[in-house]
Design a protein around this nucleic acid. Structure first.
Lengths: 209, 209
DNA sequence: CCCGCTTGTATACGGCTGTATACTTGATTA
DNA sequence: TAATCAAGTATACAGCCGTATACAAGCGGG
């Protein structure tokens, strides 16, 4: 036991292959999947009760892979002094090699299945927590309240995911997108620190609320 | 002429009614739409060549309505000194009354149809330009480069849309989401100004890149 | 050795879908 | 008033879909 059946893996691969075309995962046809996997449609039922069940399985698999990448990223970042642009570059590079990750994430995050949405949210929150920890441990945001770091991390994760989509889609603008994303991240941290420590700037914007 | 046929409007209404359930718009069945509209399936073909064509029509309609809301918002904002929280509250209130707008926007923005994606992008960019103009005309971001204002506006529009989804979905956390969104917007502007004018803060973060 | 379990297959059925063809109706307009 | 045309309907058909039932092959443990 504990070894995953061949057909189950084939269905997973088929899904990852089909997602860039059809997006939503929940809208993937069961027969379509089986066809792509070279299996009989009924094999699907040997492993999953329905499409949503299958979706959770796919999500779980993707999440595992992403976590592994994050761990790798943190390791290399800890050894050498890693800059924001290197990190963003690493992530976008990963997205480019695994577009299905981005597609499925964005799709299910706003998709029709509440269970898949929740699973995606949980996954993104976990990534955000990991990022926040990393930022704090490495002292990258000196003097910033932990709550603020967590909030910024959550915003950043989502934003990077969205821009990752653009990055995949618009090859001609990749440098610009990466630069914008880096500015975005930096601005959030700078803004949060200035909120605490530069009352003059805050005073000037006060009329906005 | 120039008056829109009854069936065409009925199909539009049906789509807006069905979108919250099925999301993606492109995945709406043609028969499903006709059923909801109380029409014969073939009536669809009297007005549209296919689902994508129909999607563009729906998007166009939604865009028109949103633009109208934005104009209304700018008017009331100009008369009384409008604060960020009022603006965010107004937008989220609108989203709450028209959830289909948020759903269709997020879905098609990352959806499978390139034409619909492009249409959504264009629409969001237009909204961002309008926001940027507003910010600059009202002098809300003193001393900030126009390019920066535009960039921040683009980021803000997307972010507000995403959080609008959460706002609709999680009634228990609406206040928190609104507060976070306001902080997000403020931080971007503060951060951009500090980039230009508070070199000490920048120096402290310099090691991040 | 054979029983039972897991994995995969074959066939089949009803339902829904997109779409083609042909008909009705009601308004416009020449 | 008669012709034209847009808008909506009726019927029909082939194709795909999810799923139910029944069967086959491999494999581990008694």
């Amino acid at each position: 036991m504990s070894v995953i059946a061949e057909g189950k893996l084939k269905l997973l691969d088929a899904a990852l292959k089909l997602i860039p075309r059809s997006r939503s995962l929940t809208s993937l046809g069961l027969r379509e999947l089986a066809r792509e996997a070279g299996l009989n449609p009924n094999t699907f039922y040997r492993h999953f009760s329905g499409i949503e069940d299958f979706g959770l399985f796919v999500l779980e698999h993707v999440a595992k892979e992403v976590k592994q990448q994050v761990r790798l990223l943190r390791k290399t970042a800890a050894s050498q002094g890693q800059a924001t642009q290197d990190t963003v570059g690493f992530v976008f590079g990963y997205f480019l090699k695994n577009p299905a990750v981005v597609h499925v994430a964005l799709q299910e995050l706003h998709g029709a299945s509440p269970r898949l949405r929740q699973a995606m949210r949980d996954q993104l929150d976990a990534s955000a927590r990991e990022m926040a920890e990393d930022v704090m441990e490495r002292g990258l945001a000196p003097g910033l309240a932990p709550d603020a770091v967590h909030e910024i991390s959550r915003n950043t994760i989502r934003h990077v995911l969205m821009r990752g989509f653009d990055y995949i889609e618009c090859p001609a603008q990749r440098d610009a997108i990466q630069a914008e994303t880096e500015r975005f991240i930096l601005r959030q941290f700078v803004g949060a620190i200035a909120e605490q420590e530069a009352p003059d700037i805050m005073a000037r914007l006060q009329q906005r609320g």
